[in-house]
Amino acid sequence: MSKSAKRKKWALLIYLGPAMSFLSVFIILPILFLLGLSFFKWDMLSGIYSFTGLSNYLGMLKDPNFYNALGNTVIYVLGTVPLGMAAALLIAVIINRKIRAFSFYRTAIFMPVIVSLAATGIIWLWIYDYQNGILNHILVEIGLGKVNWLGNPDIALFSVMSVTLWKRIGYNMVIFFAGLQVIPTQLYEAAKIDGARAGSQFKYVTWPNLLPTTSFVLIINLIFAFRDFSQIYVMTRGGPIGSTTTLVYYIYETAFNEFNIGYAAAVSMVLFVLVMILTYVQINYFSAKER
């Protein structure tokens, strides 16, 4: 190895070292620990671990609650991510056009982002309340019947998803907005001069130039959607009859109400692998596009 190459290697270590050790202590080690746990049976309290091999994973295959949670997660992700991104993009584009005139709306839309998820949940719990909630008041006011937003197992998941959307749109919007601001105005002017109207400007200028931002937002949103917990915990506790139990909530339930830590770890690993695969596919897709 030449001298300069050696030096380069050292520099790499120095630069990456802190981040790498942080990653390994706070992320990689816990994941490995979790992976290990998933082969055991452990109830957290009694110091008794017993190695059970793959039985946690095999149990999952026969566990209707796991499939229920998986199905709910898929609905939740598919329902919140694309819609949350599309709406955020639309609002960001509109605001970006009339930036000054809209500063009020910008705050209004960003507000949900600052409010913590748990507080959001509590606010919406009140809005959704069957007897006294403002939403049902309005429905009754305009002559429609009450809806049991969080109590009806056919509706509850969608009610929770709406809250997530409400919150996530603001977040996404801010990122999209930042991405839009970076696109040079001259590109739009050039496009105008070339004869492009709003639609074509979006298609040929906004969309391609926003692609890195969109890719980032998509990955973040997917990870968020798979991880969302507080609003479910606060608003529905996974119910009624499991209709809002997503994988994360199911993990919580099995770990902290059932004290079945090993099984929860196994479900966590499934979730982890799922998110890894999706992220990997996306990064590949987008970097191929950029090239």
Partner: peptide
């Protein structure tokens, strides 16, 4: 009638005479 989920201990429906 049913209480709100997991809130059967809350007095609101009773005190509001529902």
């Amino acid at each position: 009638s049913f209480s709100a989920r997991n809130a059967g201990y809350k007095l609101d429906p009773f005190l509001s005479e529902q």
